[in-house]
Structures are given as structure tokens and as C-alpha cells.
């Protein structure tokens, strides 16, 4: 299948701004699915609210566009009733870690077989550039005109601490790595979290004088490094990318089936 067979062409050109990283994340995701040879009918995409969540309108899978922060809760319901389907939940940084923060940590704790993609542009783009829990200290936003005093979550550390069994990070610049990581995350049985640094030239870029989409991607190239690299030891400010955690743990739906079996025997 070509990747255009996975999209709803009638909704293109999409609504994302010129140079938005979210389009590139979608591009990489479609390539990952194409390389797995997956049929559109075995994929369910559940999204919440925000720029990132618009993706569920553009892909031709089973799609649910749900409420802000609660995509993982809806996805949990779908997965429990149809465990044979592959669940993909793309979220923005605010959707995943502010509004949906609790859903996020508890889905990770349960280790339910869902692939969560956190498209991190460090801002609420759709509503006009408010700061998010991933904006970080010292950044500018419409709601932080004198700079932000909140510190950012580290999505990767948070996901690991909450119990996710696959945790990775990449960027919209490193598309080949991103596609491979997304592929591994989808194949992983358990809760997978992939954080993707994705540029928002319109709000984060403008407010923080980060330049154009191209400049922001150059920054991803220069400010990130593979996990455990020599460069990281020399410059601790570099952001690591790659797969941080990949481990086997009992998956929630399977455990739930065992409970049903046990309960049925009890009668």
C-alpha cells in the first residue's frame, strides 16, 4: 500500500500551519504502518483535542475524535472490547500531560497495549499560544508575556516512572529514526510512549524568536543526540533521543481475560 491509501484525501490540504511538525509526524507514522503492511481495518486511532488531535480526521483508519485529555480513556475502552485491534493515540503535550495527565500515568501503570504519541510542540497552538506543562522555564507564551516560571515535565522520565514498558523520543527532523521508533512502539505489547519534538513555528517559534520551521528543525538537529552518546557526556544540555525502555510485562487485556476465566470457574 502507498501511504496515500491511508489518508482521507478529501480533507487535504490539511489545516496545520505551513511548516508544522505535526504533519511530519503523521508522515512518519503512515510510513511506519506501511512498512508493517497493516490494513486500515486493524488500526484504531483515538485522539483528544488540539492541533495534534486533528490527525484522526486525516487518516483513513477507524478513528475517534474525543474530548480533551481523555483520548486514552476512550482508547482503553476500545482496546478492552476489541483487543485484537491496534490502538494509536496521538496527543499534544497539553492534551497528554496537563488535561490528560492522570489518564496518561494510569494507562502507563496498567500497561495496556496502546501506542501513545506525544507530539510535543511546547505550546497550546489551537487556542492561541498559551504555555503548556512542557513549555519550560524561561519560555515565552501569550499567557506568559514576561516569561514562564513553570518548570517542564520530562515526558520520558514521567512515562518511565509511571510504568510504561516502551518509552522513546525522537524529533520531526530525525524522520527515519522516528518512523522506526513508531514501528517498534506499535509492535510492542504493552503501553508505549513516543515523545516527538515537533515544531510550532506559528506560536512557540514566534513567541520565542526561534525562527522559521526550518530553523527550529535545525535546532532539533543540533540540540539532540543519541542516547548515551559521547556528546551527551560533554554537553549535558543535549536532549537524548532513541529508545529508553523496552521491557516485557504482563499486558492488561490478557490479565483481564485471566480474571474472567478465574471468575467463570468460581461459579
Amino acid at each position: 500500500m502507498a501511504i496515500k491509501d491511508y489518508i482521507r484525501e478529501r480533507f487535504f490540504p490539511h489545516i496545520w500551519c505551513p511548516g508544522c511538525g505535526h504533519g511530519t509526524v503523521m508522515n512518519s507514522l503512515l510510513r511506519a504502518l506501511e512498512s508493517l503492511g497493516m490494513s486500515r481495518n486493524e488500526i484504531v486511532m483515538v485522539s483528544g483535542i488540539g492541533c495534534s488531535s486533528r490527525i484522526s480526521g486525516y487518516v483513513d483508519f477507524h478513528t475517534l475524535h474525543t474530548i480533551h485529555g481523555r483520548a486514552l480513556a476512550f482508547a482503553t475502552g476500545v482496546k478492552l472490547s476489541r483487543p485484537e485491534l491496534n490502538l494509536i493515540v496521538p496527543m499534544g503535550d497539553g492534551d497528554a500531560l496537563a488535561i490528560g495527565g492522570n489518564h496518561f500515568i494510569h494507562a502507563a501503570r496498567r500497561n495496556i497495549d496502546i501506542t501513545a504519541i506525544v507530539m510535543n510542540n511546547r505550546i497550546y497552538g489551537m487556542t492561541g499560544g498559551q504555555f503548556s506543562p512542557l513549555s519550560g522555564y524561561g519560555t515565552m507564551a501569550t499567557t506568559a508575556p514576561y516569561s514562564n516560571i513553570d518548570h517542564a515535565f520530562d515526558t520520558v522520565e514521567l512515562a518511565i516512572a509511571a510504568g510504561a514498558t516502551f518509552v522513546a523520543r525522537s524529533t520531526s527532523y530525525h524522520v527515519k529514526q522516528l518512523s522506526k521508533i513508531l514501528r517498534d512502539a506499535i509492535l510492542h505489547e504493552g503501553f508505549s510512549v513516543v515523545e516527538v519534538l515537533s515544531q510550532c513555528p506559528t506560536y512557540f517559534g514566534r513567541k520565542n524568536r526561534a525562527g522559521s520551521a526550518v530553523d527550529m528543525m535545525e535546532q532539533y538537529k543540533n540540540d539532540t543526540t543519541p542516547i548515551g552518546s559521547k556528546a551527551k557526556k560533554e554537553n549535558p544540555d543535549l536532549i537524548e533521543r532513541g529508545i529508553f525502555v523496552q521491557k516485557e510485562m504482563p499486558e492488561y487485556c490478557r490479565e483481564y481475560d485471566k480474571i474472567i476465566e478465574k471468575a467463570m470457574k468460581g461459579n
Binding site: H14, M26, N27, V175
Partner: peptide, 11 residues
């Protein structure tokens, strides 16, 4: 194919 892989608009 880097242009194709990075294009946010699949254009």
C-alpha cells in the same frame, strides 16, 4: 527521498 519523508503536507 528526504524531502518526501519530511514534508508535513505529503506534497
Amino acid at each position: 527521498e528526504l524531502c518526501e519523508l519530511r514534508c508535513p503536507d505529503l506534497a
